[in-house]
Design a protein around this nucleic acid. Sequence first.
DNA 1: ATGCCTAACAGGGTTAGA
Length: 266
Amino acid sequence: MKIATWNVNSAKVRLPHLLEWLKRDAPKIVLLQEIKCVDEAFPAIEIGDLGYNVVTHGQKTYNGVAILSRYPLDDVRRGVPGNEDDPQARYIEAVASLPPNISKTGAVRVASVYVPNGSTADDPDKFPYKLRFLERFTVHMKTLLSYDEMLAVGGDYNIAPADKDVFSPKAWEGSVLTHDEVRRAFRRLQNLGLLDAFRLVHPELEIFSWWDYRAGAFDRNEGLRIDHVLLSPQAADKLTAAFIETSLRAKERASDHTPVIVELAV
DNA sequence: ATGCCTAACAGGGTTAGA
């Protein structure tokens, strides 16, 4: 079963790419970020026609997350608990029920997260907001891990966990994507028991999930690995493959992010 | 090299992204 995460940078603009990719690759579950639209404007009909159930947590203009699933979705949660004072739509969670002919394990809980960028480390509002979001998100992850179930949390974490996730560590030193404090926040998640699926399969591979729109960054392969699928131990036990679908970044009118995909033998 | 593209909203220039 393939589970993918993708920051589409506008569901409306990326719809042709999304539909084509869903038809070709047929991931069972897709976790989307930056849909940049309200729930009513999300192209749920077109996606539903391909056999996907759709739940969204949208917002006008900015942010917005969604879950697409070939399996039924229940127990939908919008927003991180304890973060209700935050008007930005950055988190959605649901339980996908796997049919008995597919799995004996029953269900997998999935979540799509869009961690704030943080602007610059000296920004008086945005960087503290990023750290505060990560703190509250981490508390909730601890709760979900206590359920001892299959859990996959995919998203744009806006964190390059290590220097090998950065094309030029020197150029990115001190940025909000590589900052010690956010890397520490990422390690905290891992120390709770959430495992970086891509790194489990490819411990040393240098491959990126985002490339700047400017200055031909994609053609030069000047990117970062900031999109991740984190797995509970129960899910990581089923992990058979992980890869980054670079082809979608090469298209005309591409998102600046490309899908990260994991395969679980459930 | 801190605005090199892109998107939304709006109907031009600003905000935001990473």
